[in-house]
Design a protein around this nucleic acid. Structure first.
Lengths: 212, 212
DNA sequence: ACCTGAACACCGTTCAAGT
DNA sequence: ACCTGAACACCGTTCAAGT
């Protein structure tokens, strides 16, 4: 059986598959090569280093976001759709998210979402400086939300009811955390995301009305 | 010279020092041991694994946040101060931030910020469910902002004027990005952080006024 | 041009041996 | 109880050799 020839594209795809199957920690040049049925060093004919390969993973995941846009819709609806499209990463490539978020890309690959968002905001009448600031705020919120969703940041909402019960959290020292433990324990990610998204959009609307 | 005995505390401190000096990638049990002047395996008398050690790093960094609070101040001012205290991490431990944010803590160490924030929101009259939702939104925004600040997420605002000039970004395909490149290129982190923080706080105020 | 195995300088961790 | 070196099963990458 004549296997498809090795290529950067195939290597990146294999890397993403491995990450999603076994987690980002499991990734190694040797594992990827084994998955592709080639020697380790063959990879280096198409990719200069593991670091650059991970950049490729980040780019590939970003480029797979499916944006649907209706240029005639109100800008708030367009922003909503773009934010939700972005959130799909958390569902389609949950274990790759940390790689996406932790790589500083130097290519144009991750630029399409930025271009779309800026175009939307500018068409809504925002000036360049405002558009950039607003975009940055949305990105911060979305990235932070996805990290929570993917289970990587419960640093900041880590209380499990079981911890209270096990007395590993002192109810006297943390009264609010203790009494709200059931609420902290559960999280409807979509509802939380939409709540914050709506609040942000309303805040922008109010802000631009004020400064008019 | 009688060196202080090895301890979990000293090992964590050495790890943080190493991360801040050489970056999170440079960290290894062997490097930490060398920095402490002991054999690698000595570490394992105080720490069960590298993973748990990194949890310790995250906890230690979080526990170093200096909160100042005035219970008599308006809740919006208290939230502002807490958010800014959190942001100090990005300045004091920039290279450790990724570790802090990527560790799922199972201890009570990271709980103080959560407790304080919940107490503040509840004292402002928010119900438990609202307090938790609002807290989650702030945390998402803050975490996302710090990741940008620390240079780890320019995935989403990566355009440097130099890229445009070097034609590595096609001005025809990315007109907004190209024309706004100078704005995307620079970022006053404090101003951006404050802009979004203020917007969020105003949004919460408006939201709670609406639902009253 | 593409593939490869051997080799090098690293890892984290187990284990048995020391005090 | 604490420390340790040797050993094991891994890493990423260089290099020289193959086609």
């Amino acid at each position: 059986m004549p296997t498809e020839p090795l290529s950067r594209r195939r290597i990146v795809a294999a890397a993403i598959g491995l990450i999603e199957r076994e987690g980002a920690d499991a990734i190694s040049m040797r594992r990827i090569a084994a998955d592709l049925g080639v020697g380790v060093m063959s990879l280096y004919n198409h990719v200069p280093s593991k670091d650059v390969l991970l950049d490729g993973v980040a780019e590939a995941v970003l480029s797979k976001i499916e944006f649907t846009d209706d240029p005639d819709a109100h800008w708030t609806d367009r922003v909503r759709l773009q934010a939700r499209a972005f959130r799909q990463i958390a569902h389609h490539y949950p274990r790759s998210l940390m790689v996406v978020v932790s790589r500083q890309l130097h290519s144009a690959a991750g630029l399409l979402p930025v271009e779309r968002a800026l175009a939307t905001l500018r068409s809504a009448g925002f000036g360049g400086a405002d558009a950039v600031r607003i975009l940055r705020m949305f990105i911060a919120y979305i990235v932070g939300s996805l990290l929570r969703e993917v289970g990587v940041t419960p640093t900041f909402a880590p209380v499990h009811t079981r911890m209270i019960k096990a007395d590993s959290v002192d109810a006297a020292l943390f009264p609010e955390v203790s009494s709200l433990a059931p609420l902290l324990d559960e999280c409807d990610h979509e509802a939380e995301f939409e709540f914050g998204l709506e609040l942000l959009i309303q805040a922008i609307v109010a802000h631009s009305a004020r400064s008019r």
